[in-house]
Design a protein around this nucleic acid. Sequence first.
DNA 1: CTGTTAGCGCCTTCAA
DNA 2: TTGAAGGCGCTAACAG
Lengths: 337, 337
Amino acid sequence: MATIYEVSKLAGVSLATVSRVMNKNARVSDKTKQKVLDAMDELGYRPNSIAQSLASNRSNSVGILVSELHGPFFGLMMSGIEAELRAAGKHVIITTGQCENGNQENKEKDGIEFLISRNCDAIILHVEAASDDYLRELAKGDIPVYLMSRLVEGLESQCISLDNELGGYLATKTLIEQGHSQIAYIAGPQFKADAHARFMGHKRALAENKISFDENLFYIGDFKETGGKNGVKYFCNNQQSFTALVCANDEMASGAMTYAREHGYLLPDDLSIIGFDNIIFARYIYPKLTTIANPVDEMGHMAAKLVLKDVYQQKNLTIKHAFEPTIVMRDSVKALT
Amino acid sequence: MATIYEVSKLAGVSLATVSRVMNKNARVSDKTKQKVLDAMDELGYRPNSIAQSLASNRSNSVGILVSELHGPFFGLMMSGIEAELRAAGKHVIITTGQCENGNQENKEKDGIEFLISRNCDAIILHVEAASDDYLRELAKGDIPVYLMSRLVEGLESQCISLDNELGGYLATKTLIEQGHSQIAYIAGPQFKADAHARFMGHKRALAENKISFDENLFYIGDFKETGGKNGVKYFCNNQQSFTALVCANDEMASGAMTYAREHGYLLPDDLSIIGFDNIIFARYIYPKLTTIANPVDEMGHMAAKLVLKDVYQQKNLTIKHAFEPTIVMRDSVKALT
DNA sequence: CTGTTAGCGCCTTCAA
DNA sequence: TTGAAGGCGCTAACAG
């Protein structure tokens, strides 16, 4: 591999000049610039990004931490981030804070440590277990921290978040508008801020419509298919009567559907179900799932733009920190007549 | 940030000694080692991975190229790779050769170029459009290349592949065993090697059972939901009679189901459908999809192990290059009586 | 077992 | 506009 030194020799100029034409930041006469370009070409020169990083104290990499790599949700998010960053010549180091068993909070911290040790110029986190305090502390460190799908007090300008409360509200309101009043709710783990906010939205919609919240129609699931199944099972076993169900994410909605159908419910006639996230598969499910759209891909792009603007001083970027969910009407909700 | 120099000063030893305790490769007396460790601790020292890379000519990063980041398929693959590599202290740089419009082959090459420019120690590719010749040429370069889900002649030892032909065979054979003989096939783009092999397997199963291949029951889809829909539509419009359908991947199977159901078919009674890949959502679909399992996560782990063994000289790793698909029986296939 | 000494390939003042 | 020279933080011979 040719080095800058060989290029300079071949072009008959100094190292510094070659560096200048590479970085386009200082004026170089057209003539010498051409000589350098030709020399690079002839040698098939490629800058060594590691050496550049060491000298410039910039790695041109941004670290991403997601809870899990598989699953329908994060693909879209990473896709957005990667596309934006790569177009700017930065690369993306991805790791997980995943936790099949054990302490998720520690796994997340491990992941963050790992990214920091990689000398990223910035890190974008989608963490669920890490506390606000920890994140605020982390943000005081040397490396800029950005948060996806989360809003931490004091770190607002580094957050890209979704109004989950509004989403939960919309879901339940939609059901109410369709005539339902016996509405069950399967929540996500309440230590996760978004799961909690969605549930709060549900309660607000109920309250606004003078429907009292019924503890017996509330179940906390795990954001997985199983959670949905267990939730419906729980309601059934307790002989609860309900005509509609909101699930705090689509995977639980899918599980709920499966269980309900296997236990004699005709969908959506006997039970209206609404999900949350609008993952790719929501429309594959039968009946096609009515759900709350979570614009993760757009948010991913925005997080990347935020990094480009803050960390890499890119200009002319408008940042939108707060996103709003919308309802996607499909076939899993039926009006109660 | 403290440097190795400050540590050495505080510990009263030389740079080299500090380096030695970091890299655990040379013997250092316990006493001096402890002094160094203490000094590191006191200073909150963290090695600068970039400087390490420059000096050692090792970036400890491996590049991954996948066709797309979203979608159910690659998540599992990357998850396997990432877990394995991270456990070994290597990091993963992910990029895509994705192509919404335009030339996929060029996008893939761009992605590869990008990874090379990042000084990865190795790259793992999941490419579909790149030709065998191009890959062989690439493999002659300085940076080791590994191929996922693909078997290129001459590069066998760097490939982790699935026997797609066998998978296609299994799918169709399963249907035949259930009494079907009018079996439609919706293929993936035939320039993709795996799509082609799956189709070949289908033909072999037919031939073995003296069922002649019927051009009118063959459709080439796009590996997306739409492909499945269009395929069934095509068969219906042509008034073809068939009792079973194999789709070259699960997404098309899902699309096929949707279209069939919307057009009066009762599933699985009127039409048995079998997919391929066993993506996470296969069991969410209704009826639950019978399909061919593609052990992508396991293959991801294996690809990572291969890199660890070849590139990072890790010992005691057994590599399995060829994987075999298996059938997963669920509810979308019904015996013909 | 430990220290000395060159670099790794590039960027960036500082002078000219 | 260009060149010279000193690092960036660490590794890897080579001595001792």
